[in-house]
Design a protein around this nucleic acid. Sequence first.
DNA 1: CGGTGAATTGATAGTTATCAAGTCCGGTGG
DNA 2: CCACCGGACTTGATAACTATCAATTCACCG
Lengths: 232, 232
Amino acid sequence: MHRCLVCEIRDQSVCRAIDDEDLVVLAKSSKQLSLPPNTTLIEEGSSATAFFNVTAGTVKLFKSLPDGRRQITGFADVGHFLGLTNAGTYSFGAETVDTVQVCRFMRPQLETLLADYPQFERRLLAEVTDELAEAQEQMLLLGRKTARERVASFLLARMIHRPCQTTGEENRVSLPMTRVDIADYLGLTIETVSRTISALRRDHIITGTDHHGIRVLSPSRLRGLASGQENA
Amino acid sequence: MHRCLVCEIRDQSVCRAIDDEDLVVLAKSSKQLSLPPNTTLIEEGSSATAFFNVTAGTVKLFKSLPDGRRQITGFADVGHFLGLTNAGTYSFGAETVDTVQVCRFMRPQLETLLADYPQFERRLLAEVTDELAEAQEQMLLLGRKTARERVASFLLARMIHRPCQTTGEENRVSLPMTRVDIADYLGLTIETVSRTISALRRDHIITGTDHHGIRVLSPSRLRGLASGQENA
DNA sequence: CGGTGAATTGATAGTTATCAAGTCCGGTGG
DNA sequence: CCACCGGACTTGATAACTATCAATTCACCG
């Protein structure tokens, strides 16, 4: 059957630009993959042959230096696409954080889609524009915020962006990634991330001992911290 | 007459997506402006009413924190556009660095252009994709590079991107922006930028005493530094 | 030629990295 | 079911890099 027609997250992704009839074509030009944690989706510098749409889980995007230093440039979760590039090679790498499902489009087929469905291209432009705005926000964080402000910004962004209301707990934030990933995202070391989270706990701004999930006690104080009011 | 037809940088900008006949329409929907140094083009957070195409000079884009800390997210020079956003307000500010000329499109007219010229949208998508790749490179710089590596990366990028061959000097790099701007772009202080440039001079990697232009003596050592080889 | 803002240089302080133990937690096997 | 194992995380002590504060020096422009 036509897989894309019954896609649960269709309205959250770029695919919403395509109507029911044409989704048949889309289903043929894409393939769904299920990937275990820490799988390489895109190797940095490899030739750009595919394009992915995340339908479940979280993917990390990153760039590295020859000596191994790494900067995670973003986490892509449900509904996000990745793999666009003008050059022939990917300028970044991508790995799964947890178990991930993606739809993969091969490049020639993507080109066809872009040519045939202006709406699809329109959606893509909007998505990339959003990503650029996020990247600018992250540059502000990396260039000008303190460790405490960075961690607060990160937790706040995850609280707002992924309202984890599956559990009964209020303001719960899930952290599927490791401390290494958080550190590489915030431009810090794992020790500084750990110490800073502990400090926020001591200050009763957050709570919870689980390493992969915390609860925000005072969203307003967190918001204050994230925007540079070092008190609150 | 039809200004856009004789535009000297047309083939360097998004306007190259539009053919001669239709440029007449473009000329009507845009307006050319000449602006002195340090003019605000876009106020951070103001409502997004216009879109600009730089035809001469350099514009700085930035984001700020309430207490005044600022991060310059990029410099836009000849051929670059700026002002795209999905939200109703700009998430960033923009100011001229030197004397700048821009073509201004008002938002409704831009929407029309996008709808009528798929090629224009295509070009825009490519441009934004490039900017995103640059932003990711800058995140690597801000999150993981040392001061010396940051300055080396900056000088190298300007050498490669703006081959300043107007003067006879080889490998000349022009720095129209102030030390404050460079510092805010690299996530450093002006003192650290100044000290680092002096150190590169001492190490005979660059030369020149002019504050707004230097000459690279050893591009290869600069390249090594920029990618993390702390020797070279 | 003097004035003024920009840039450089110096001394010191602070934030975060590095190095080094521990502790916690999830998974595995007895 | 419980003990053990190993990786992830936390905590502590110290070091290093860059920021801050302060004083010149430089260069541009009237």
